[in-house]
């Protein structure tokens, strides 16, 4: 069993159009590194200067990772990671 990562429309150019892909790791940072290994270009859209980019929201199951350790958030097999673009502006 792996971790299922759901990919928003804007990032599907990196996954060949797939809405969800599988990845492995025990922290969100490892999951993102694993994503990058298989779908090059994703990491720079998610991480900036060692923390999550302000343009994205990342959830492990139903938990916004900003409240559960950010890139160090724990992830286990069977979890769902959801990436959504932040909807914001001025």
């Amino acid at each position: 069993m792996a971790i299922t990562v759901s990919i928003p429309t804007i990032l599907r150019t990196h996954t060949g159009g797939q809405k969800s892909v599988e990845a492995a790791g025990t922290t969100l940072a490892q999951v993102i590194d694993d994503l990058e290994a298989n779908h090059g270009g994703l990491k720079s859209r998610l991480v900036k200067e060692g923390s999550l980019h302000r343009f994205v929201n990342v959830y492990v199951n139903d938990e916004d990772v900003r409240f559960s350790g950010g890139l160090e958030a724990a992830v286990k097999d069977g979890d769902n990671v959801t990436i959504l673009p932040a909807v914001a502006g001025g």
């Binding site: 929201n57 959830y59 916004d64 959801t82 959504l84 914001a88 502006g89 001025g90």
Partner: peptide
Amino acid sequence: MLNAERSPTFYRFDATEQLKVH
């Protein structure tokens, strides 16, 4: 949606509500 910023110059969808609606 809730404007998590509650600001006259900025808005951001509340992240938890956004996931639920998604």
